[in-house]
């Protein structure tokens, strides 16, 4: 097979994102298996993923674990007075158990997810945020997951 750089290679990042959000091979050389499927080389696939990760287009390549299968997580929200937003946001972010923290336009303007090895630790973190901020924390744990998570459909047009 010719190994010259082709137009196909220029589209490799998109083809990888479109085709690799699920079913990443669980085989000894998964990037090589993807390369064979896409008609390119293992090195080019690895380079494309490294570039996408460097540019922030891809957060990571790996397993997406189901919420609460490993550890215990909870979505939480606080209605923070605007003049305290920076301070309270920094407090929330300072906990390593907080893995998402978004400011949103709403009376409840700070939304974050707490994930811990077990529910007791998770609730202790929520209690600590409540105590240290002096603000009530709305606790909204997942009761049911309705999404199959086949990956997000990226339409490039």
């Amino acid at each position: 097979m010719a190994m010259d750089r082709t137009e196909e290679d220029d589209n490799l990042p998109r083809r990888l994102l479109d085709g690799c959000q699920r079913d990443f091979p669980l085989t000894p050389r998964p990037f090589g298996a993807l390369a064979a499927r896409l008609g390119t080389t293992e090195a080019r696939v690895l380079d494309a993923f490294r570039d996408m990760r460097k540019d922030g287009l891809v957060g990571r390549i790996g397993a997406v674990y189901r919420t609460n299968t490993v550890g215990s997580s909870c979505l939480a929200a606080i209605g923070v007075p605007l003049d305290r937003l920076d301070e309270v946001a920094a407090l929330v972010c300072s906990f390593p158990e907080v893995n998402h923290n978004y400011e949103r336009e709403h009376a409840f303007n700070l939304w974050f997810v707490v994930t811990a090895p077990d529910q007791a630790r998770r609730d202790a973190v929520l209690d600590a945020i409540e105590a240290q901020s002096g603000l009530r924390v709305l606790r909204l744990p997942m009761l049911e997951d309705f999404h199959l998570d086949l990956g997000f459909k990226l339409s490039w047009s």
């Binding site: 990888l16 959000q21 699920r22 957060g59 390549i61 397993a63 997406v64 990956g151 997000f152 990226l154």
Partner: peptide, 8 residues
């Protein structure tokens, strides 16, 4: 594991 792949 829900899926293994690239997380865009």
């Amino acid at each position: 594991i829900r899926r293994i792949g690239a997380v865009p």
